[in-house]
């Protein structure tokens, strides 16, 4: 699976499960924090569980910077495959 396919899957998951509208979510959109699209820390757990289930990559305890946007999550997955 290419990094772009991973990004598309992550976007699909975030929209369908976490209720984000697809048109406000680009791969470089900030996910968490004040200027972001309103995801909270519980949503980050959903992402951790999704990444574990889908790619077998463990993101428990991983630094916040890796959850900055879809680009950074996908990069982490690719690097740790």
């Amino acid at each position: 699976m290419t990094e772009n396919e991973i990004k598309a899957k992550l976007k699909e998951f975030i929209c369908s499960t976490l209720g984000v509208e697809p048109d406000v979510l680009d791969y470089d959109t900030e996910l968490f924090g004040e200027n972001a699209i309103g995801l909270d820390s519980v949503d980050s757990l959903e992402i951790i569980a999704f990444v574990d289930g889908e790619y077998g990559i463990d993101m428990t305890g991983v630094g916040k910077e890796h959850f900055f946007n879809i680009d950074s999550i996908a990069a982490y997955i690719t690097e740790n495959k």
């Binding site: 757990l45 959903e46 951790i48 569980a49 574990d52 428990t60 305890g61």
Partner: peptide
Amino acid sequence: AQQAALKMFR
């Protein structure tokens, strides 16, 4: 707990 919850979450 953390690792088991990760699997239970799903």
